[in-house]
């Protein structure tokens, strides 16, 4: 049944197609003819460009003697706002007379002379030990103030000097005080000392050394005025367990002075 329908449709399509084809050819021919007629009319029935016609349009030119330019306006003289005359320029600054450069010959050259040799002035040698400052509250005849220290040790930033009030003992056992000086210098740390506040100042500590070499009665005898220097001087002695047995005697008293000088 379906085959029958398809065939029927095909027949109907062919019939309609055959009628439309004739109409289409006719219409195409009419369009071609119209285009050809229009082209012929446009090309043949028009004037040709550049053709020989005498009445063709043209520009006519005639020579004159002058061009009629507009009149120049008279300059405005009285106007204060604008003038065409240039105003007077300000006078240039007066020329400063420059000094001619000195010629080499102008300067007198001294003959080379050997400078007279001056013997160097010997700087006063620094005192090898801190000078004891006279204590004004005491009699000047006090022997402690005039005694030379037993041992002076150069430490970092200054000196440390040891004084033994018992001078006979100090002379007899000088080696022992050399050992003390060495041990104190090893345990004296200057890192914590304020250099600005302590420069040129001295702290004096006094202590006893017992028979077994231990330190007793450690005290700050003279403040330096710089707490950091005072503390470092005290700590230097406090760090020491023992100085070694005393060579003789029951105990000795030691005065230790720490001078601080920045290098």
């Amino acid at each position: 049944m379906s085959t029958t329908v398809i065939q029927h449709r095909n027949i109907a399509t062919e019939e309609r197609f055959g009628g439309g084809m004739g109409l289409s050819i006719t219409l195409h021919l009419l369009v071609v003819a119209g285009v050809g007629a229009a082209a012929w009319t446009g090309l043949m029935l028009h004037d040709r460009w550049g053709g020989p016609e005498a009445n063709a349009g043209a520009i006519q030119a005639s020579m004159v003697s002058a061009i009629p330019l507009p009149q120049k306006a008279a300059p405005v003289e009285k106007s204060v706002l604008a003038t065409e005359n240039a105003s007077e320029a300000p006078a240039p600054p007066p020329k400063v007379e420059t000094q001619p450069p000195p010629r080499p010959t102008d300067i007198e050259v001294k003959a080379k002379t050997q400078p007279a040799k001056i013997a160097p002035i010997p700087a006063p040698a620094p005192p090898k030990h801190p000078q004891p400052t006279p204590d004004t509250t005491k009699a000047a005849s006090g022997e402690v103030a005039t005694q030379l220290p037993m041992s002076v040790t150069q430490v970092k930033n200054g000196t440390a000097s040891l004084t033994v009030p018992d001078r006979v003992y100090g002379a007899r056992y000088a080696y022992y005080f050399g050992i003390i000086g060495r041990k104190v210098a090893q345990s004296y740390f200057t890192d914590g000392i304020s250099a600005i506040a302590s420069n040129g100042k001295s702290a004096v500590v006094v202590f006893d050394i017992e028979r077994d070499g231990t330190v007793q009665n450690l005290r700050l005898y003279q403040r330096s005025g710089s707490p950091t220097l005072d503390a470092a001087a005290m700590a230097a002695i406090q760090r020491i367990d023992t100085f070694g047995n005393l060579p003789a005697g029951d105990h000795i008293t030691i005065e230790y002075k720490f001078d601080f000088h920045t290098q």
Binding site: L148, S151, V152, T153, K156, F177, G178, G181, R182
Partner: peptide
Amino acid sequence: MEINKGAADKIR
């Protein structure tokens, strides 16, 4: 009086 150079030097 004895002057020591410093803590570092050893006893000779």
